[in-house]
Amino acid sequence: MSLESGLILSGILFMIGLTGVMIRRNIIFMLLSVEIMLNAAGIAFIFAGSSRADPNGQIMFLFILAVAAAEVAIGLALVILIYQKFKTLDIDGISFMKG
């Protein structure tokens, strides 16, 4: 178990999350995939920190955690709003917003 194996795992999980964002059109699944990607970035930080006995990696993970929590709170509030307004969770269904 080395730094490389951890980074490879992190890369695989990040690619799965990115694939999820691209192939899914349900907005809840897109949020889940973003969570997966944040977590994969966290794995890279933890392994880099542990390989040189440095607490900075774990501290960066704490900040990633806080950002993920804030993102989920706002994102889910937006999901509820979108569902109330458009009665759909399909991201293509609201593409007329031209965002």
Binding site: S51, A53, P55, N56, I59, L62
Partner: peptide, 15 residues
């Protein structure tokens, strides 16, 4: 494990 154990104390102090 091949990697170093970084405990709660170090993380807390640095944080």
């Amino acid at each position: 494990t091949g990697l170093n154990l970084v405990g709660v104390q170090e993380v807390g102090i640095s944080l």
